[in-house]
């Protein structure tokens, strides 16, 4: 298998705390990779480093073997590293249609088009609508994002990322805070992600993790603690002790 995204001795220090401690992680092409760990373990920080939102204190990040440590966020998106946010980061005043349309037009490099009216490219509109249909957002496409139900906003988070056509998709707790009866919609959207997209999923719900992942990395106190297949991780006594605690896990 080829490695798409790799970190070498990646580190991030905040004042008084090491949020990412010497992490060397390899994510294989097409993988369904889960990243788990207790609250404050440094999972989100790792995503911030991978996407360039934060500058690492040390170490390197490679995409297809090329060092991208100094590439700014928006260029990494162009290279195919796309994320979602644990806490919604959407455009409250725009509608889902505008949001997705924007992402699609930026991906196509048409974002600087200033003489063309929004909506005047039929193929762009139909692609955007297609994405909104896939995520069951068609009934709210003309509504301001800020007033959408929380579950719809979570779906939009993923839909925007998909509109960027990721090669590597980093999902930061996509179902966080979604009421039980709406979770399945998010989870099936995650499960239906195209096979050629490599996915790194952060999730606390072990049922989701074990049904989704073919590889699991456990992060504790900023450092990689254990890594392996779901079976290996489930069997690992240290993981049970440190992280999973009393939670029953069926492999």
């Amino acid at each position: 298998m080829t490695v798409v995204l790799e970190t070498i001795n990646l580190a991030k220090r905040f004042t008084g705390i090491i949020a990412t401690n010497d992490v060397s992680l390899r994510i294989e092409k097409g993988a369904r990779h889960a990243l788990i760990g207790p609250n404050g373990a440094g999972k989100t920080t790792l995503i911030n480093l991978l996407t360039g939102v934060m500058k690492p204190s040390g170490g390197r990040i490679l995409l297809d073997g090329e060092d991208i440590s100094d590439v700014p966020t928006h260029k990494r998106v162009r290279l195919g590293i796309v994320r979602t946010f644990q806490i919604n980061q959407l455009f409250g005043d725009l509608t889902p249609l505008e949001t997705i349309g924007l992402a699609v037009s930026e991906r196509r490099g048409q974002g600087l088009d200033w003489w063309r009216i929004v909506g005047s490219r039929p193929d762009l509109v139909s692609e955007s609508v297609g994405i909104l249909e896939r995520f069951h957002l068609t009934d709210v496409i003309e509504e301001r994002t800020a007033v959408l139900p929380y579950g719809k906003q979570r779906l939009l988070e993923i839909a925007v990322a998909i509109a960027c056509r990721p090669r590597v998709l980093l999902l930061d707790e996509p179902a966080a805070g979604v009421p039980e009866d709406e979770r399945h919609e998010i989870l099936s959207a995650v499960a239906a992600l195209p096979d050629d997209v490599t996915v790194l999923l952060i999730e606390h719900d072990m049922d989701i993790v074990f049904s989704f992942a073919d590889r699991i990395s456990v992060l504790v106190n900023g450092a990689l603690f254990v890594e392996g297949t779901p079976e290996e991780v489930a069997r690992d006594a240290r993981v049970k002790a440190v992280y999973l605690g009393e939670e029953p896990v069926d492999a």
Binding site: T51, V53, P72, T73, H74, K75, V77, R78, V82, R83, F85, Q89, L90, F91, G92, D93, L94, E98, T99, G101, L102, A103, S105, E106, R107, Q110, G111, L112, D113, W114, W115, R116, I117, V118, V160, A161, A163, C164
Partner: peptide, 25 residues
């Protein structure tokens, strides 16, 4: 009213997300 104008509004609304969809804020 162009895609460029829309991207300005997105940058105004949320620079973090804007860069996360590939916009150079």
């Amino acid at each position: 009213n162009s895609p460029f104008g829309l991207s300005l509004m997105s940058v105004k609304g949320n620079p973090l997300r804007s860069s996360a969809i590939g916009i150079s804020v």
